Lab assay of single mutants.
Amino acid sequence: NQASVVANQLIPINTALTLAMMRSEVVTPVGIPAEDIPRLVSMQVNRAVPLGTTLMPDMVKGYA
């Protein structure tokens, strides 16, 4: 099963992502692949992401 990127904390809108904000977890539906975590660092979210939410490509500016 593919691990996805999950929010490790509440991430406010327009926040630049850091490693501490993300974790890898096997979830359904599948979100951004966990191997993309290094690429996500310093990218901004375009909405508030609650703790435990799977990051989807449309939630991260410049990812999709």
Results as ranks from 00 to 15, higher is better:
residue 13 I to F: 06
residue 44 Q to T: 08
residue 64 A to R: 03
residue 47 R to H: 05
residue 6 V to P: 00
residue 43 M to A: 05
residue 1 N to T: 11
residue 21 M to W: 03
residue 13 I to L: 07
residue 8 N to M: 11
residue 25 E to K: 11
residue 24 S to A: 14
residue 18 T to E: 08
residue 53 T to G: 15
residue 48 A to Y: 10
residue 6 V to E: 02
residue 4 S to E: 00
residue 24 S to Q: 07
residue 47 R to D: 07
residue 23 R to P: 01
residue 56 M to V: 10
residue 14 N to P: 01
residue 59 M to Q: 11
residue 58 D to V: 07
residue 44 Q to R: 15
residue 12 P to K: 08
residue 55 L to G: 00
residue 64 A to T: 14
residue 16 A to H: 09
residue 20 A to S: 14
residue 58 D to T: 07
residue 17 L to Y: 00
residue 41 V to A: 08
residue 21 M to N: 09
residue 28 T to M: 08
residue 28 T to L: 06
residue 52 G to P: 01
residue 33 P to K: 07
residue 24 S to I: 08
residue 36 D to Q: 11
residue 30 V to I: 12
residue 45 V to A: 06
residue 35 E to C: 03
residue 31 G to W: 02
residue 61 K to Q: 13
residue 42 S to D: 14
residue 7 A to K: 01
residue 31 G to E: 01
residue 60 V to G: 00
residue 4 S to D: 01
residue 64 A to L: 12
residue 27 V to A: 05
residue 24 S to V: 10
residue 32 I to R: 00
residue 50 P to L: 11
residue 60 V to Q: 01
residue 31 G to Y: 02
residue 50 P to F: 13
residue 31 G to R: 02
residue 25 E to C: 03
residue 12 P to H: 05
residue 27 V to Q: 08
residue 36 D to F: 11
residue 40 L to E: 01
residue 56 M to T: 12
residue 56 M to L: 14
residue 21 M to P: 01
residue 37 I to N: 02
residue 7 A to R: 00
residue 51 L to P: 15
residue 39 R to N: 12
residue 15 T to V: 15
residue 11 I to G: 01
residue 13 I to W: 06
residue 6 V to C: 02
residue 60 V to D: 01
residue 41 V to P: 03
residue 58 D to N: 14
residue 62 G to S: 13
residue 26 V to M: 12
residue 31 G to I: 01
residue 4 S to P: 01
residue 58 D to K: 08
residue 14 N to Y: 12
residue 38 P to K: 15
residue 40 L to N: 01
residue 57 P to M: 08
residue 34 A to Y: 12
residue 5 V to F: 01
residue 16 A to K: 11
residue 2 Q to T: 07
residue 4 S to C: 04
residue 4 S to M: 03
residue 49 V to E: 02
residue 40 L to F: 02
residue 61 K to C: 03
residue 52 G to K: 04
residue 12 P to Q: 11
residue 12 P to A: 11
residue 7 A to L: 04
residue 28 T to S: 13
residue 29 P to F: 05
residue 46 N to S: 14
residue 26 V to W: 06
residue 63 Y to G: 04
residue 56 M to R: 08
residue 50 P to M: 15
residue 23 R to G: 06
residue 35 E to A: 15
residue 8 N to F: 04
residue 40 L to Y: 03
residue 3 A to W: 06
residue 6 V to Q: 05
residue 58 D to I: 15
residue 21 M to E: 02
residue 24 S to D: 11
residue 29 P to N: 14
residue 40 L to H: 00
residue 27 V to D: 02
residue 38 P to E: 11
residue 50 P to H: 08
residue 34 A to C: 03
residue 13 I to A: 08
residue 24 S to W: 08
residue 53 T to Y: 13
residue 18 T to C: 03
residue 55 L to H: 00
residue 19 L to H: 12
residue 59 M to W: 14
residue 1 N to H: 14
residue 10 L to V: 05
residue 7 A to F: 01
residue 30 V to T: 12
residue 48 A to F: 08
residue 38 P to H: 12
residue 61 K to A: 13
residue 37 I to K: 07
residue 62 G to R: 08
residue 13 I to M: 10
residue 52 G to F: 05
residue 33 P to L: 11
residue 22 M to S: 01
residue 51 L to S: 10
residue 10 L to M: 14
residue 56 M to P: 02
residue 12 P to L: 10
residue 14 N to F: 05
residue 23 R to F: 06
residue 17 L to C: 02
residue 43 M to V: 05
residue 25 E to M: 15
residue 5 V to R: 00
residue 19 L to M: 11
residue 59 M to T: 07
residue 26 V to D: 08
residue 12 P to M: 11
residue 42 S to Q: 15
residue 4 S to W: 02
residue 31 G to F: 01
residue 11 I to H: 00
residue 4 S to N: 01
residue 42 S to A: 06
residue 50 P to Y: 07
residue 39 R to D: 05
residue 25 E to I: 13
residue 5 V to M: 02
residue 3 A to F: 14
residue 24 S to F: 11
residue 43 M to T: 05
residue 61 K to V: 08
residue 23 R to D: 14
residue 20 A to V: 10
residue 11 I to A: 01
residue 19 L to R: 10
residue 62 G to P: 10
residue 15 T to P: 00
residue 22 M to N: 01
residue 55 L to Q: 01
residue 63 Y to C: 03
residue 41 V to K: 07
residue 61 K to M: 09
residue 13 I to T: 10
residue 57 P to A: 09
residue 60 V to M: 06
residue 19 L to Q: 12
residue 4 S to F: 03
residue 2 Q to V: 10
residue 46 N to K: 10
residue 63 Y to T: 05
residue 20 A to P: 05
residue 30 V to H: 12
residue 45 V to R: 00
residue 9 Q to E: 14
residue 49 V to L: 12
residue 12 P to F: 08
residue 63 Y to P: 05
residue 47 R to K: 13
residue 34 A to G: 05
residue 12 P to E: 08
residue 32 I to T: 02
residue 44 Q to Y: 14
residue 15 T to A: 09
residue 48 A to W: 09
residue 41 V to Y: 05
residue 26 V to Q: 08
residue 57 P to S: 09
residue 14 N to M: 09
residue 64 A to D: 14
residue 9 Q to I: 07
residue 63 Y to L: 06
residue 7 A to D: 01
residue 2 Q to D: 05
residue 24 S to C: 03
residue 23 R to C: 03
residue 13 I to N: 07
residue 16 A to E: 12
residue 12 P to N: 11
residue 22 M to P: 00
residue 5 V to K: 00
residue 7 A to I: 08
residue 55 L to I: 08
residue 51 L to Q: 14
residue 42 S to C: 04
residue 51 L to N: 09
residue 10 L to W: 15
residue 57 P to K: 08
residue 57 P to L: 04
residue 52 G to Q: 04
residue 48 A to N: 12
residue 38 P to V: 07
residue 34 A to R: 05
residue 52 G to N: 10
residue 39 R to E: 04
residue 24 S to P: 06
residue 11 I to N: 00
residue 17 L to Q: 01
residue 8 N to V: 08
residue 23 R to E: 06
residue 61 K to W: 13
residue 41 V to M: 15
residue 45 V to N: 03
residue 48 A to C: 03
residue 5 V to G: 02
residue 49 V to S: 02
residue 55 L to P: 01
residue 32 I to L: 07
residue 20 A to I: 14
residue 60 V to R: 00
residue 27 V to P: 02
residue 61 K to S: 14
residue 25 E to N: 07
residue 12 P to I: 09
residue 9 Q to V: 05
residue 24 S to T: 12
residue 34 A to M: 10
residue 52 G to M: 07
residue 56 M to I: 07
residue 18 T to D: 07
residue 42 S to I: 03
residue 18 T to S: 11
residue 48 A to M: 13
residue 16 A to C: 03
residue 55 L to T: 00
residue 8 N to E: 10
residue 39 R to Q: 11
residue 45 V to W: 00
residue 64 A to P: 12
residue 36 D to W: 07
residue 46 N to Q: 12
residue 51 L to M: 13
residue 36 D to M: 11
residue 5 V to D: 01
residue 32 I to K: 00
residue 59 M to S: 07
residue 62 G to Y: 15
residue 51 L to E: 10
residue 17 L to R: 00
residue 38 P to S: 09
residue 19 L to N: 08
residue 57 P to I: 07
residue 6 V to T: 08
residue 9 Q to W: 11
residue 48 A to I: 09
residue 19 L to W: 14
residue 23 R to K: 12
residue 26 V to E: 14
residue 33 P to F: 07
residue 11 I to R: 00
residue 5 V to W: 02
residue 55 L to A: 01
residue 3 A to V: 10
residue 39 R to S: 14
residue 42 S to R: 09
residue 6 V to L: 07
residue 36 D to P: 00
residue 40 L to A: 02
residue 9 Q to F: 04
residue 56 M to E: 12
residue 55 L to E: 01
